[in-house]
């Protein structure tokens, strides 16, 4: 890499950048892991309540969002491959597709949450006070976990858009793509978490 003639080049350590991103991903995995653990314990404590509450969720919306995230995870991976193969046009289109899918996910989430609020199913609502403790816990966890996940989607979109601009400006190239690689890793993390969130919240009842 580094040669003696060219002192203008910036020092770079791709491996360290990648390792740093992974260390951050570990903390994220343990953060959501802890929430999954809380969910499991309360689910064992209030099986009936959790069962009834999970029936309130729309499986159709859940499946749609799962498909959206899986496809978006592939599109961002394609974007990275495209950059490595010098196909910047495809890379940029794939990033835009990923962002569009992320926005579709958020629109779905908006309608899903909206319906819950409409039915009075949110922590602290009048209806919630009449229901059993397990329902309260289920919806508390539902909003917190999907909310935290949605926050990650928003951050992911910002990172992907920064990558887009960097490709545009030629700062991400086939021999210098760590920013895109790390943004993509973050996006896959969002997908990875959803892979576990979806069956736990929507399906197992």
């Amino acid at each position: 890499m580094s040669n003696h003639e060219n002192h203008t080049h910036v020092h770079r350590d791709d491996e360290a950048q990648k390792l740093g991103m992974w260390l951050f991903i570990f903390t994220e995995l343990l953060l959501f892991g802890g929430l999954f653990l809380v969910y499991s314990i309360f689910r064992m404590q209030y099986p009936e309540n959790f069962h009834e509450s999970s029936l309130e969720l729309s499986v159709t919306l859940g499946v749609t969002n799962t498909v959206i995230l899986l496809v978006s995870s592939m599109s961002v991976a394609i974007s990275l491959t495209a950059v490595q193969k010098n196909n910047y046009k495809l890379a940029k289109w794939m990033l835009l597709l990923t962002v569009a899918l992320a926005l579709a996910f958020m629109v779905n989430k908006y309608f899903e949450w909206g319906a819950k609020f409409h039915h009075g199913l949110y922590p602290g609502s009048e209806l919630m006070h009449l229901l059993d403790r397990g329902h309260h816990l289920y919806f508390g966890l539902y909003f917190f976990m999907t909310g935290l996940h949605a926050l990650h989607i928003i951050i992911g979109v910002i990172l992907l858009l920064i990558s887009y601009v960097k490709i545009q400006k030629g700062k991400i190239q086939s021999d210098n793509f760590m920013h895109l690689e790390n943004a993509a890793l973050y996006w896959h993390l969002v997908d990875l978490i959803w892979i576990f969130l979806f069956p736990l919240l929507y399906l197992i009842s």
Binding site: M1, R12, D13, D14, E15, V63, T66, V67, L70, V71, S73, M74, A77, I78, L80, T81, Q84, K85, D175, F198
Partner: peptide, 25 residues
């Protein structure tokens, strides 16, 4: 030791993985 011989995942592999993921869903 920054060797830049990174592995490039082929488009085909990514497509196949997506199909498996969707089927499993």
């Amino acid at each position: 030791m920054s060797e830049n011989t990174h592995h490039i995942t082929p488009y085909r592999t990514l497509g196949i993985i997506l199909l498996i993921l969707l089927s499993l869903t």
